[in-house]
Amino acid sequence: MNSNEKNTALYEKMAAEQDTFRDWLKSQSPEEVLNHAYEYTVREDIVMAMEELELSDKQAQALLDSPSPLADVYRHFEKLETGYMDVIRESIEERANEMHRAKEEQRAAPVYPHS
């Protein structure tokens, strides 16, 4: 199996693993679904990234050898420190600033009481 075929096989294995996870999740209570919403979303992103990612033969084979490569990658990702919350805070601040500026511009606009 060449590198491209291994990457394709890995993508298909991860997509099938996600399908199984999705089916399990759909059978759970709404509360349990909410408990796994973040995990589901990150796993979807991992599968989407695998569509275009080209791993080396060794990398692809190492993940293919795992019974659950998607869960393995998710568990690794879950332990990483990411700037996700920093991005959220920056988004809130930037949007608040934009809205404040728009309000100030609206207040500063001249009002003509007569036509």
Rank of each mutant, 00 (worst) to 15 (best):
D65M: 06
A37Y: 01
M48R: 14
Y38G: 00
L64M: 07
E52L: 11
R95D: 09
V33Q: 13
L70F: 05
R43D: 01
A49W: 14
D86N: 15
A37L: 05
N35V: 00
A49K: 14
D23F: 00
N97F: 09
D72H: 08
S29T: 12
S115I: 07
L70M: 07
E105W: 08
F77D: 05
I88H: 14
D57G: 08
Y40K: 04
A16M: 04
E104M: 10
D86E: 14
T8Y: 02
Q106F: 07
K103F: 07
L53W: 13
Y84A: 12
R101F: 03
D72T: 10
L70P: 04
D57F: 10
A49S: 13
E31K: 07
V47R: 02
R95S: 10
R43Y: 02
A71W: 02
T82Y: 06
A37I: 00
M50R: 02
D86I: 11
R22W: 03
D72V: 06
M85N: 11
G83P: 12
K26R: 10
L25N: 09
E105D: 07
L53Q: 14
S27N: 11
Q59I: 07
Q106L: 06
H36A: 04
E54V: 15
F21M: 05
P110G: 04
K6P: 02
Q106M: 06
R75L: 04
I46Y: 03
H100I: 12
A37C: 00
L55D: 09
T20V: 12
N35Q: 03
Y38H: 03
L53T: 15
D72G: 09
D45L: 12
L34W: 00
S29C: 02
E51Q: 15
